[in-house]
Amino acid sequence: MTNDTKFTKFMNIPNFYLGDIEKQNKDDNQIVTPSLGLYADEIRQRVLNEFAQTQSKLKESGGLQSKRSAKIPDVSVKGHSDIAADVLMEENNDIPDFTKEELMHEIDLLKKSSNCDSITEYKRKIVNGEIINFSHAQIKIWEMLEGKLQELEDAE
Protein backbone atom coordinates (compact mmCIF):
# COMPACT_ATOMS: atom_id res chain seq x y z
CA MET A 1 0.00 0.00 0.00
CA THR A 2 1.44 3.35 -0.94
CA ASN A 3 1.49 6.31 1.39
CA ASP A 4 -1.16 7.98 -0.79
CA THR A 5 -3.48 4.97 -0.54
CA LYS A 6 -2.96 4.76 3.21
CA PHE A 7 -3.76 8.42 3.58
CA THR A 8 -6.83 8.20 1.34
CA LYS A 9 -8.10 5.31 3.46
CA PHE A 10 -7.29 7.18 6.65
CA MET A 11 -9.11 10.30 5.54
CA ASN A 12 -12.04 8.24 4.21
CA ILE A 13 -11.94 10.07 0.91
CA PRO A 14 -14.78 8.91 -1.36
CA ASN A 15 -13.80 6.82 -4.37
CA PHE A 16 -15.10 9.40 -6.80
CA TYR A 17 -12.72 11.95 -5.36
CA LEU A 18 -9.70 10.87 -7.33
CA GLY A 19 -11.93 10.20 -10.33
CA ASP A 20 -13.04 13.81 -10.34
CA ILE A 21 -9.48 14.97 -10.37
CA GLU A 22 -8.64 12.51 -13.17
CA LYS A 23 -11.65 13.71 -15.15
CA GLN A 24 -10.66 17.31 -14.71
CA ASN A 25 -7.13 16.54 -15.83
CA LYS A 26 -8.46 14.68 -18.89
CA ASP A 27 -10.74 17.58 -19.74
CA ASP A 28 -7.81 19.91 -19.55
CA ASN A 29 -5.77 17.53 -21.72
CA GLN A 30 -3.29 17.33 -18.91
CA ILE A 31 -1.65 14.31 -17.32
CA VAL A 32 -4.15 11.45 -16.92
CA THR A 33 -2.94 10.41 -13.47
CA PRO A 34 -3.94 12.69 -10.62
CA SER A 35 -1.85 15.78 -10.35
CA LEU A 36 -0.01 15.50 -7.07
CA GLY A 37 0.06 19.26 -6.71
CA LEU A 38 -3.71 19.54 -7.13
CA TYR A 39 -4.26 16.48 -4.97
CA ALA A 40 -2.10 17.88 -2.18
CA ASP A 41 -3.92 21.22 -2.35
CA GLU A 42 -7.27 19.45 -2.05
CA ILE A 43 -6.04 17.43 0.92
CA ARG A 44 -4.68 20.52 2.62
CA GLN A 45 -7.98 22.28 2.19
CA ARG A 46 -9.89 19.24 3.41
CA VAL A 47 -7.80 18.95 6.58
CA LEU A 48 -8.22 22.64 7.32
CA ASN A 49 -11.97 22.51 6.62
CA GLU A 50 -12.45 19.53 8.91
CA PHE A 51 -10.45 21.26 11.61
CA ALA A 52 -12.57 24.42 11.26
CA GLN A 53 -15.79 22.36 11.43
CA THR A 54 -14.62 20.55 14.57
CA GLN A 55 -13.67 23.80 16.26
CA SER A 56 -17.02 25.32 15.29
CA LYS A 57 -18.94 22.35 16.74
CA LEU A 58 -16.92 22.52 19.95
CA LYS A 59 -17.60 26.23 20.29
CA GLU A 60 -21.33 25.70 19.72
CA SER A 61 -21.43 22.99 22.36
CA GLY A 62 -19.51 25.20 24.78
CA GLY A 63 -16.85 22.56 25.14
CA LEU A 64 -13.95 24.16 23.36
CA GLN A 65 -12.04 24.81 26.58
CA SER A 66 -12.40 21.32 27.93
CA LYS A 67 -12.45 19.19 24.81
CA ARG A 68 -9.26 18.01 23.24
CA SER A 69 -9.01 20.92 20.88
CA ALA A 70 -6.07 20.96 18.54
CA LYS A 71 -3.73 23.46 17.06
CA ILE A 72 -4.27 24.31 13.40
CA PRO A 73 -2.55 21.52 11.50
CA ASP A 74 0.54 22.62 9.66
CA VAL A 75 -0.16 21.48 6.13
CA SER A 76 1.77 24.16 4.34
CA VAL A 77 4.67 22.34 2.75
CA LYS A 78 4.26 18.67 3.61
CA GLY A 79 3.51 15.55 1.63
CA HIS A 80 0.46 13.35 2.15
CA SER A 81 1.97 10.89 4.59
CA ASP A 82 3.42 13.77 6.62
CA ILE A 83 0.01 15.39 6.82
CA ALA A 84 -1.57 12.11 7.97
CA ALA A 85 1.14 11.71 10.60
CA ASP A 86 0.53 15.26 11.81
CA VAL A 87 -3.20 14.63 12.15
CA LEU A 88 -2.52 11.46 14.15
CA MET A 89 -0.06 13.36 16.32
CA GLU A 90 -2.68 16.01 16.99
CA GLU A 91 -5.05 13.29 18.23
CA ASN A 92 -2.46 12.10 20.72
CA ASN A 93 -0.80 15.35 21.62
CA ASP A 94 -3.50 17.94 21.54
CA ILE A 95 -3.26 19.68 24.88
CA PRO A 96 -3.85 23.39 24.36
CA ASP A 97 -1.21 25.82 25.55
CA PHE A 98 -1.92 28.29 28.31
CA THR A 99 -2.82 31.61 26.76
CA LYS A 100 -1.29 34.80 28.08
CA GLU A 101 -4.75 35.94 29.23
CA GLU A 102 -5.36 32.71 31.18
CA LEU A 103 -1.97 32.97 32.87
CA MET A 104 -2.48 36.62 33.77
CA HIS A 105 -5.92 35.79 35.21
CA GLU A 106 -4.57 32.95 37.36
CA ILE A 107 -1.60 34.96 38.60
CA ASP A 108 -3.86 37.92 39.35
CA LEU A 109 -6.09 35.69 41.51
CA LEU A 110 -3.04 34.42 43.38
CA LYS A 111 -1.88 37.98 44.03
CA LYS A 112 -5.30 39.15 45.19
CA SER A 113 -6.03 36.14 47.39
CA SER A 114 -2.59 36.33 49.02
CA ASN A 115 -2.69 40.14 49.41
CA CYS A 116 0.71 40.30 47.75
CA ASP A 117 1.79 42.19 44.63
CA SER A 118 4.15 39.44 43.56
CA ILE A 119 5.38 36.00 44.42
CA THR A 120 8.57 37.62 45.71
CA GLU A 121 6.55 39.57 48.27
CA TYR A 122 4.63 36.43 49.20
CA LYS A 123 7.86 34.53 49.84
CA ARG A 124 9.29 37.48 51.78
CA LYS A 125 6.24 37.45 54.07
CA ILE A 126 6.75 33.73 54.66
CA VAL A 127 10.40 34.27 55.55
CA ASN A 128 9.42 37.11 57.90
CA GLY A 129 6.82 34.91 59.59
CA GLU A 130 3.91 37.09 58.47
CA ILE A 131 2.43 34.09 56.66
CA ILE A 132 2.51 30.84 58.62
CA ASN A 133 0.24 28.49 56.72
CA PHE A 134 1.24 28.14 53.11
CA SER A 135 1.69 25.49 50.49
CA HIS A 136 5.11 24.81 49.02
CA ALA A 137 3.38 23.18 46.06
CA GLN A 138 1.26 26.30 45.51
CA ILE A 139 4.42 28.42 45.50
CA LYS A 140 6.06 26.09 42.99
CA ILE A 141 2.99 26.20 40.74
CA TRP A 142 2.85 30.02 41.01
CA GLU A 143 6.52 30.14 39.96
CA MET A 144 5.84 27.87 36.99
CA LEU A 145 2.92 30.04 35.87
CA GLU A 146 5.08 33.17 36.21
CA GLY A 147 7.83 31.45 34.22
CA LYS A 148 5.47 30.56 31.40
CA LEU A 149 4.03 34.09 31.31
CA GLN A 150 7.55 35.51 31.13
CA GLU A 151 8.35 33.11 28.28
CA LEU A 152 5.29 34.25 26.32
CA GLU A 153 6.09 37.91 26.91
CA ASP A 154 9.69 37.42 25.81
CA ALA A 155 8.48 35.72 22.65
CA GLU A 156 6.32 38.71 21.68
Binding site: Q65, S66, I95, P96, D97, F98, E102, H105, E106, I107, L109, L110, S113, S114, F134, S135, Q138, I141, W142, M144, L145, K148, E151
Partner: peptide, 20 residues
Protein backbone atom coordinates in the same frame (compact mmCIF):
# COMPACT_ATOMS: atom_id res chain seq x y z
CA UNK B 1 -11.23 20.66 34.88
CA UNK B 2 -8.67 22.49 32.76
CA UNK B 3 -5.72 20.80 31.12
CA UNK B 4 -3.14 23.20 29.70
CA UNK B 5 0.36 22.77 28.39
CA UNK B 6 3.21 24.77 29.89
CA UNK B 7 5.74 23.43 27.41
CA UNK B 8 8.86 21.40 28.22
CA UNK B 9 6.64 18.34 28.80
CA UNK B 10 4.79 19.97 31.69
CA UNK B 11 1.02 20.10 31.79
CA UNK B 12 -1.19 21.90 34.27
CA UNK B 13 -4.28 20.03 35.50
CA UNK B 14 -6.50 22.33 37.47
CA UNK B 15 -9.95 22.34 38.99
CA UNK B 16 -11.06 25.74 40.27
CA UNK B 17 -8.89 28.83 40.20
CA UNK B 18 -5.50 29.17 41.84
CA UNK B 19 -6.45 31.00 45.01
CA UNK B 20 -4.88 31.10 48.42
Amino acid sequence: LKVRSLGNNFVSVKLDTHQI
